[in-house]
Design a protein around this nucleic acid. Sequence first.
DNA 1: ATTGCAAGTGCAACTATTTGCACAATGACT
DNA 2: AGTCATTGTGCAAATAGTTGCACTTGCAAT
Lengths: 158, 158
Amino acid sequence: MTAHPTIVESLRQEGYRLTPQRIMILDIINDSMSHISAEEIHRKVQEQYPFVNISTIYRTLNLLKKLRLISETDLGDGYVRYELLERERHRHHHLVCRQCGESFAFEDELLKPLQIRLLKEYGFAADVDHFAIFGLCQRCRRGEGRGGVRKEGQHGAD
Amino acid sequence: MTAHPTIVESLRQEGYRLTPQRIMILDIINDSMSHISAEEIHRKVQEQYPFVNISTIYRTLNLLKKLRLISETDLGDGYVRYELLERERHRHHHLVCRQCGESFAFEDELLKPLQIRLLKEYGFAADVDHFAIFGLCQRCRRGEGRGGVRKEGQHGAD
DNA sequence: ATTGCAAGTGCAACTATTTGCACAATGACT
DNA sequence: AGTCATTGTGCAAATAGTTGCACTTGCAAT
Ligand SMILES: [Mn+2]
Ligand SMILES: [Mn+2]
Ligand SMILES: [Zn+2]
Ligand SMILES: [Zn+2]
């Protein structure tokens, strides 16, 4: 319970209605420690209230994304994943290894120079909310291709 | 006819079979002046040979992508689009305006510093083949929001 | 508390893309 | 030219995600 009241307020302020579905979804994203998929959100919502349809989840996620309250990212596991967008503190992005599937966070600071050049040279204001950059991690480059092989898809029971 | 013989050769050299489907698909991507979708490729293939299934298109695209012969990019119009990856010359990326939908190319050179820092500081070898960075273009930032409104989806007849 | 209506929801049908499986075709070896 | 193992293909069924439409609900004005 209690999605950042800040967020709930900003929703109402923008003229959007505070439905129980929206509040539940926000709570779940807020309580989730990391990137969460629509399917996972749907399962958790249904534990509380089983009549919520998956399309409502997607519609709410798209709204929150449009308002830049959450990020939407493909981290390469076959599901689009969502995360609260902290407006002030520790903005971060991810490096995703194509071989082992591991995901490493990196600081927003590394993207600032690019952002600045795009603005200066092209007048383009890049949305730098939450990137995922694919490639090969250090371990995999060294041939220490540890067990974990890239998995795509199929939401299973946890 | 005649997809870069270089590419056809590299396919055979890697031990993949040269089926008429693969050659047709490569020809179409090669002849296409810009980013092309799976559906568009399928339509063009079917003009020549109507029995090719769309799943073959996707499977071939996934193969060519794995071999880094083509790039796969979401340019925000609701379709994943494909393009030959020139290995040597003029590698480029795109800035996509979330408001007007316009797409502007920019040189790979701008991503080099980031690429180098990721390698030095994280040991991560980023695949920098063909990025699409979303944001607001100069015109739209200035409020000159020219007509064109963001369109998502629905492949129509051209 | 009641009303009215625009915004939101559930449902079913649809879209793009993936996958399992039985059958067909490639290309290496003869 | 013919054989054969293996790879690739077509088809149908599945997947995640979207959308039109009729019904419900939040909420502002009374
Ligand atoms: Mn993250
Ligand atoms: Mn391009
Ligand atoms: Zn790795
Ligand atoms: Zn624009």
